[in-house]
Design a protein around this nucleic acid. Sequence first.
DNA 1: CGCGATTTGTGCACGCCTTCACAAGCGCCT
DNA 2: AGGCGCTTGTGAAGGCGTGCACAAATCGCG
Lengths: 250, 250
Amino acid sequence: MSQQRHGSTSGNGDRAGAVPAFPDLPEATIARLPEYLRALHNLGEGGADTISSEGLAAAAGVNSAKLRKDLSHLGSYGTRGVGYDVALLIEQIEYVLGLDQRRAVGLVGVGNLGHALAGYDGFASRGFKIVALFDADPAKVGERIHGLVVRHIDELPAVAAEETLAIGVIATPAGAAQAVADELVAAGVTSILNFAPCVLSVPANVDVRKVDLAIELQILSFHEHRKASLTALPGGRSATGAGNQEAVGS
Amino acid sequence: MSQQRHGSTSGNGDRAGAVPAFPDLPEATIARLPEYLRALHNLGEGGADTISSEGLAAAAGVNSAKLRKDLSHLGSYGTRGVGYDVALLIEQIEYVLGLDQRRAVGLVGVGNLGHALAGYDGFASRGFKIVALFDADPAKVGERIHGLVVRHIDELPAVAAEETLAIGVIATPAGAAQAVADELVAAGVTSILNFAPCVLSVPANVDVRKVDLAIELQILSFHEHRKASLTALPGGRSATGAGNQEAVGS
DNA sequence: CGCGATTTGTGCACGCCTTCACAAGCGCCT
DNA sequence: AGGCGCTTGTGAAGGCGTGCACAAATCGCG
Ligand SMILES: NC(=O)c1ccc[n+]([C@@H]2O[C@H](COP(=O)([O-])OP(=O)(O)OC[C@H]3O[C@@H](n4cnc5c(N)ncnc54)[C@H](O)[C@@H]3O)[C@@H](O)[C@H]2O)c1
Ligand SMILES: NC(=O)c1ccc[n+]([C@@H]2O[C@H](COP(=O)([O-])OP(=O)(O)OC[C@H]3O[C@@H](n4cnc5c(N)ncnc54)[C@H](O)[C@@H]3O)[C@@H](O)[C@H]2O)c1
């Protein structure tokens, strides 16, 4: 880690304008950082000043060696014999994840799922703010949800022009998803979270993450199936092997 | 594949009672099977009888070599020079995923998100049926949602006794999630889909998958951050590297 | 001031997954 | 009947991620 960036004054504020161009963190690591962050916040509220890798690993549900290696990738902020400074580590991870600036989210498709998302306070507390809601249904446009007015999808370019949307969320039916994605991309959005069960085609510089509940259920179904086929087999070993806590991140 | 199980009569029904105890498919493969399945259904509705690995791979958003290797793991159902028989492959994958029997899902926590899930028809069309809704709030108990009456969480054991729940879905606040998970496990549920942002502790024979939207957003945020720090750097290569379609599966 | 207890950071080996590249197999056309 | 083009299935190589095990570092105490 060439750039040490150690928060000398403990508080924030010394973050230089020019971002240091990241060492390429392993994808697997960055997928776990949010989990560490959540665990740290819990621990912090619990009054802990420092936490050992063992403790944090347990709270995040991972192996302690993995956790240490992950953290080592973003430059070492632990103290041997003591552990990690909770506040400092929170600050570090938030910085790496780009959460020091609150990211603006635009949500397209205010149906069943969209409604739930729009009203979810878990976004605000984790660094995001839904700043705009869009739908194509005239009956929905104008509706007020949690302080936001639903706007017509055609207004997307205008809205994006006045407030940069960091992330676009697609909660429309699958048939409309690709068109919506195209419009988001045209409006300058380079990160998309897609709830529609379909593959999106986007330019190479745009990141798409997909959440498909049916897929999750089907994976569970497979394991059910497998477990069922094992019930009448040799030693019913329960220890060795599969059975556990798979996070959704890639 | 020792057991060929070739659907001779094309329809279903010849599935012998004793399941053949699976070759251990790579975890990565089973996480992609649902995606292939969805793509196949789309193609089938489009009127295709057969599909090449190239075509199916494109529809599912993966590399064609990867797709072939995945499918080869479950015994080859393709024809060289022609491709895969769409109907047969659908049947195959559904069998492997255990979707030939419709799985009963119990949903706990009928709040914002729970409501949306309860009303989602995408489950039914993909092999699942929500058979019970639970909540702890007396104000919610008794409410009728999409033909199902919300029952009190205390009734879970009774309900589970009369209808086996294959999968439990947790959509309660994080604070209640562990308790709910314990109750599900006690009721005999061995697969859990968890929407609450917390780590669940369960016995080794229970599978847990987690969906955390904030984590997805934070991962996107990281890439935004990284991209932003790269704008003013050497050759703005857009081809090489990250930027794309990461599925939610492990 | 030195020693032991504790905990981080990491070298290393192993296994999984991805990807390339190609031989083997299949159907169609002549 | 034979050849040609197309597509599958897979061997092999390389890369990535995980987890062990341990040296280095720090703190607290006698
Ligand atoms: N409801 C769930 O629990 C759930 C779960 C998993 C996945 N999903 C997926 O999420 C998506 C939304 O689900 P839902 O249940 O909210 O569906 P929905 O039909 O209730 O809502 C879809 C909304 O999108 C709007 N819309 C349609 N085309 C549009 C367009 N071109 N531009 C803007 N808005 C448009 C519709 O007007 C509607 O309000 C679907 O793809 C569904 O498969 C939903
Ligand atoms: N709403 C969203 O879009 C969204 C998005 C991502 C994650 N989540 C997560 O999903 C969970 C639910 O979110 P929500 O917005 O629906 O919250 P909510 O408060 O609207 O609903 C929670 C429901 O759970 C019920 N409940 C509480 N304790 C219970 C118990 N012990 N047993 C049974 N039921 C109990 C409550 O009565 C309530 O009806 C939360 O953990 C949230 O973080 C929600």
